[in-house]
Amino acid sequence: MTDQPTEQDDSERGGEGPLDRAAFAERVDALMDRLYGTALRLTRNPDDAEDIVAEAVGTAWKRRADLRDVERFEGWLFRILNNTFVSWLRRRRSREDLEVSSEPEDGDADSGGDFSLFARLHQPFLLWWGTPEHEFLNRLLREDIQRALDQLPDEFRIAVVLVEVQGHTYREVAEMLDVPVGTVRSRLSRGRSLLQQALWERARDAGLKTVVDSPDRNSDGSVDNGQT
């Protein structure tokens, strides 16, 4: 398949590919913050993230002949990064005597998988003074999201990053992780729910309650806003 890195074939194919060394290095450098950030969110460990990025770039350079279309460089490189991460995860799990396809947390996928930030924020009686959900998004910091992502258990965080951040299809993620598509769906559902719950709790800790929860904001006298 064109431009599809094949994890199984790790031979050094050689060949020049469409990019020379300088052009290749320049493109990698331009993507470095996103490569590192993605690896960091996946691994949650700066040293591991650096190792994975370095290994992925090395693999990409060895396989540069596979890249037929330079316009696909970014997707191609990120796919190699993902494959490198999955291999790293399998090695780590193997050391920990666990299988990457094991699903210890997935049994909970259907329970508590329905937390909705929007439902918490979208309080109709508050609409007279503004839209809390817009206020929330405007106040949300990048660090809040990064910390909330980092709080997620591995399986859920990986599914969210691969689908929401990288835009992979469920089937692509299933193939990457060697799990059924239904497992990807359930991990994603649970991961999103936990992520929204973490963001909600972080926002409340950071003072969102002064906006949403404050009873003296209600000129109609309603105090109980149904928050839990």
């Binding site: 998004l137 999201i145 992520l195």
Partner: peptide, 19 residues
């Protein structure tokens, strides 16, 4: 916002290592 949050300034040592 979640997608945007992922980009993180890479350490200079990583850029040097990759070069």
């Amino acid at each position: 916002r979640v997608a945007d949050s992922v980009s993180t300034t890479a350490p200079q040592r990583l850029r040097t290592r990759v070069r």
